[in-house]
């Protein structure tokens, strides 16, 4: 293995992922090569200065955890408030819209058949409705129909 090839593997030796054979080769080269020993020494010095092992006090760790948990909780509350809002308003609104839609379209479909029938048929159809007056106009008939026969 040449000097250049060893240099490529110098830090692999330092980091650990060399095969046993490679490690022996690099180590025997290091014993004879001042330049490579300097490179390793410089690397270690840089690493020790720029990446020291950080230690945090227990109080600092607790404070950090408290801050993160505070943010997680407030994020949770925001989500919850939207959820609450959804169930409190959107579900009843959606339910009402469905009922209103059903009433509306039922009335429309029935009123179209209603318009095609003669008034006598209408009177016959509503003869069971005690509130219906034969003298009423179509509007009154519709009102009576929708309020008493459709809505439970």
């Amino acid at each position: 293995m040449t000097h250049e090839m060893i240099q490529q593997k110098l830090f692999a030796l330092y980091d650990g992922p060399l095969t046993e054979q490679e490690r022996k080769l690099v180590e025997s080269h290091l014993a004879q090569c001042a330049e490579c020993r300097r490179a390793i020494a410089q690397g270690k010095a840089v690493s020790a200065r720029l990446f020291p092992v950080h230690t945090f006090s227990e109080a600092a760790e607790d404070a950090f955890v408290a801050k993160v948990m505070g943010r997680v909780r407030s994020a949770g509350e925001k989500v919850e408030s939207w959820t609450t809002l959804f169930f409190r308003w959107m579900v009843p609104l959606a339910g009402s819209a469905v009922v209103a839609g059903w009433v509306f379209f039922s009335v429309l479909s029935d009123s179209s058949s209603f318009s095609s029938t003669s008034s006598s048929n209408v009177e016959a159809a509503f003869s069971s409705d005690s509130s219906y007056s034969s003298g009423s106009g179509n509007g009154i008939v519709l009102a009576s129909y929708s309020s008493q026969d459709i809505v439970p």
């Binding site: 300097r38 020494a41 410089q42 270690k44 010095a45 840089v46 020790a48």
Partner: peptide
């Protein structure tokens, strides 16, 4: 910044 005397003290 990497003076030899300081670097080798790391060893």
């Amino acid at each position: 910044f990497l003076r030899e005397k300081d670097v080798y003290k790391e060893e």
